[in-house]
Nucleic acid binder design. Structure first.
Length: 558
RNA sequence: AGACCUAUGGUGUAAUCGGUAACACAUCAGUUUUUGGUUCUGACAUUCAAGGUUCGAGUCCUUGUAGGUCUACCA
């Protein structure tokens, strides 16, 4: 009973448990702080999962806060898509969505406080001059000539910046810390800049906007975020994060950095993703090949699969590249439980069952999902004299002794129907098989087989008369290289997988799919998992391949 | 060149805080199967290097080595 193995914690959970144990907090408060200037991708999913799951685990809360301090890049359109994606992933943020822009008055007051304490000054230097003043990582910087302006003058100038008296770029508010500090972020960082631009929420109310370092930590503090989780590259910002909170004397949120998740064959750079779209290499941000949440959703990846994937990938502080196989595994694991099995033939070849009565249709009862209780129910599938099977499931002369699909003289089970015996085939001048002739064992009907015939293989099939044409899109990884952006000598586009999309204009699916709703996921038996595309209609069915089935046979053949 | 961070099987993450390296994916072999899917079983394989402390080191110390991050009026 007490032999229960101790659950291992990641380093963030350890910190939180410590804080809880010491009574520092009764529950954690986390936040997910996207900038509304792009679509969410798998990397964001990781951050979302970490923040929401950790709060859930310890009975805390998670805010959604849009970090909208840069009016030039941010748009309301993204706010909506981000909200939708988070909900789809299965998470609910605390109360309404929050915006850093809601704190602009408070942030302005914080800045004033800093000036009054002699810890900030208005600098008239140009961006170039400021860059020069900063020095570099080995050389200390030098003070700005405006650094020692009297407090009253700073106050006045800052107010006039806000009033719109000065043009963009003419002045900034800087913290007054230490231009020789080894941490570059302490060399009098810029706190506010002038931008006469219309903000997606505050309109033209403001023409000065706080920088990340003077917005993020303060917003965390205002919201009483206890643990502010972010990625490793913010490590060097942390001392400044702490310094500002301390000088302001406000709620001490704590920043904790973790390594962001990289996934093999995927890229998460906003700029590069945009390039793919702009170059027409993918059809938009929700192209099923994109590592965006909208792309994955369209491809048929269940939200639960993404959640378990992020969980299995773990949390630590070292650089990592998670293999794509783990992602596929999580997708299959989820879909195996939830997706109904149906039959579809992608590359058809006609089979005539010569001893089956012409014009007769026999309804076969086929289970929907053997992984579910009661097999997920049953559906009726029509069986007739002429059917399609997969061209790859027939061989004129099989070489491999372990081959147990269709070939002259061989017996094979048609899933949910009869065992058939291959009598022969017809081919055209090029040797392409045009028809396979078979006979069936009339006492081998599925579920009532008294034939005694043993068939090693089971094939999927579709009655030609009832077959419904559909477009099927086969997706593969977008890049042939696991880390396309990590080659100094090569552009990532060189690794673009030309075969990442193969369209089959006319595949044949069983009639039960005729009215399939967009977003429905299936297992096309023996082929893989598929999802009905968002643009699919009963007049033109479209299915996207989410992921193939594991294929140990195909691999062995080499 | 400086400061900071990180090094555990092929990949990712653990190891109850110094007690004899584990879990998952991948790979391979077998089992089950009316999906060459699923299930189940087994195998393979690991502490960056060199010293030191200790009865005992993946854990501590020293020195290296490798990788990453930092010098936007982006976040």
């Amino acid at each position: 009973m007490s032999e229960e193995k101790r659950e291992s914690l990641n380093f963030i959970e350890e910190i939180i448990e410590e804080d809880l144990k010491n009574g520092k907090y009764t529950a954690p408060a986390t936040r997910f702080p996207p900038e509304p200037n792009g679509y969410l991708h798998i990397g964001h999913a990781k951050a979302i999962c970490i923040n929401f799951e950790i709060a859930k685990k310890y009975g805390g809360t998670t805010n959604l806060r849009f970090d909208d301090t840069n009016p030039t890049t941010e748009e309301t359109e993204y706010v909506d898509s981000i909200k939708r994606d988070i909900k789809w992933l299965g998470y609910e943020w605390q109360n309404e969505a929050l915006f850093t822009s809601d704190y602009f008055p408070q942030l302005y007051a914080f800045a004033t406080t800093l000036i009054e304490k002699g810890l900030a000054f208005v600098d008239d230097s140009t961006p170039e001059e400021i860059a020069l003043q900063k020095g570099d990582t080995t050389k200390p910087g030098v003070n700005s000539p405006y650094r020692d302006r009297p407090i009253a003058e700073n106050l006045d100038l800052f107010r006039r910046m806000k009033e719109g008296e000065f043009p963009d770029g003419s002045r900034v508010l800087r913290a007054k810390i230490d231009m020789t500090h080894p941490n570059m972020h302490f060399r009098d960082p810029v706190l506010y800049r002038i931008k006469h631009e219309t903000h997606h929420r505050t309109g033209d109310e403001w023409c000065i906007y706080p920088m990340y370092d003077f917005a993020h930590g303060q917003s965390d503090s205002i919201e009483h975020i206890t643990h502010s989780l972010c990625s490793l590259e913010f490590r060097h910002h942390r001392p400044l994060y702490d310094w500002l909170i301390e000088q302001l004397g406000i709620f001490p949120s704590r920043q904790i950095e973790f390594a962001r998740m990289n996934v093999a064959h995927m890229i998460t750079s906003k700029r590069k993703l945009k390039l793919l779209v702009d170059e027409g290499l993918t059809i938009g941000w929700d192209d099923p090949r994109m590592p965006t949440l909208s792309g994955m959703r369209r491809r048929g990846v269940p939200a639960a699969a993404i959640r378990t994937f992020c969980d299995k990938a773990g949390v630590a502080k070292r650089e990592n590249v998670i293999e794509a196989e783990l992602f596929d595994f999580c997708t299959r694991q989820e879909l195996n439980k939830t997706a109904d099995r149906v039959m579809a033939v992608l590359d058809p070849v006609k089979v005539v069952i010569t001893n089956f009565p012409e014009g007769e249709t026999e309804m076969m009862s086929v289970e929907n999902n053997p992984e579910e209780e009661d097999n997920g129910g049953y559906r009726e599938v029509p069986f007739t004299r002429e059917i399609y099977v997969e061209r790859a499931d027939f061989k004129k002369e099989p070489q491999n002794r372990k081959y147990f699909r269709l070939a002259p003289g061989k017996d094979v089970r048609l899933k949910g129907a009869y065992i058939i015996h291959c009598e022969g085939f017809e081919e055209d001048a090029e040797g392409k098989v045009t028809q396979i002739n078979c006979t069936y064992y009339d006492n081998s009907r599925s579920g009532a087989d008294t034939s005694g015939v043993k068939a090693k293989g089971t094939l999927h099939w579709v009655s030609i008369e009832h077959a419904v044409p559909a477009e099927v899109r086969l997706y593969d990884r977008l890049f042939t290289d696991p880390t396309p952006t990590m080659h100094e000598d090569k552009d990532f586009l060189e690794f673009y997988n030309e075969e990442s999309l193969k369209v089959i204009p006319t595949a044949y699916v069983e009639p039960s799919l005729k009215t399939s709703e967009p977003g429905t996921t299936y297992q096309f038996m023996r082929l893989g998992y598929f999802a009905t595309d968002t643009e699919s209609t009963p007049e033109k069915l479209i299915f996207n391949r989410t992921v193939t089935l594991r294929d140990t046979w195909g691999k062995r053949k080499g």
